[in-house]
């Protein structure tokens, strides 16, 4: 099965082929993305939107943890905040800064909603994810994004 799939995909999707093979042989996917990137997909997939990707590294250069996690009320849990666009436009969560004053505002949809469709909510590169639940991405995730 694995070999047939790889042949069908051709040269351009060689990377996907490698990933598929790795997945089929039970090898955990290599953690490539930046440490502490969070994919938030509570509602995005269902709404036909790409999941949002939050880069911790970019924000911690500009703000201390306290600003978001104490003042703005972000819980220490990926996907535990039930963030919706309505709340953001209302000035809660991301909307406290992403309002066109402190940072760019919400009309730049694709800057946040840039994840591969079908990627579940998770904390990228976390110990828990590496040790307990490494396979987080469905094998046909890339195929779905091409449609």
């Amino acid at each position: 099965m694995a070999l047939k799939n790889e042949r069908d995909l051709g040269f351009k999707s060689l990377l996907l082929g490698v990933l598929l093979t790795l997945g089929l042989f039970g090898v955990s996917q290599p953690a490539k993305a930046e440490y502490a990137d969070v994919v938030i997909n509570n509602y995005a997939d269902a709404a036909g939107m790409r999941p949002a990707v939050f880069p911790h590294w970019f924000h911690r250069i500009r703000f201390r943890c306290k600003v978001c996690h104490a003042d703005l009320g972000f819980k220490f849990k990926a996907g535990g905040n039930k963030i919706t666009m309505a709340k953001i436009i209302d000035g809660q969560f991301c909307g406290a800064c992403h309002n066109g004053e402190v940072a760019w505002s919400v009309e730049n949809c694709a800057m946040c909603h840039s994840g591969i469709p079908g990627t579940p909510t998770h904390f990228h590169g976390s110990t828990l994810q590496r040790l307990v639940a490494p396979a987080y991405r469905p094998l046909d995730a890339k195929k779905a994004s091409k449609k």
Binding site: Q29, K32, A33, E34, D37, V39, R50, V53, P55, W57, F58, N108, A110, M111, H113, S114, G115, I116, P117, T119, H124, S145, K146
Partner: peptide
């Protein structure tokens, strides 16, 4: 890796390429 190569950003999304690389 820069966002387009990191495996969680969608490369069919144009804005992925305007995101800053770590």
């Amino acid at each position: 890796p820069p966002p387009p190569e990191d495996g969680i950003h969608d490369t069919s999304n144009e804005a992925t390429f305007s995101l800053q690389a770590p």
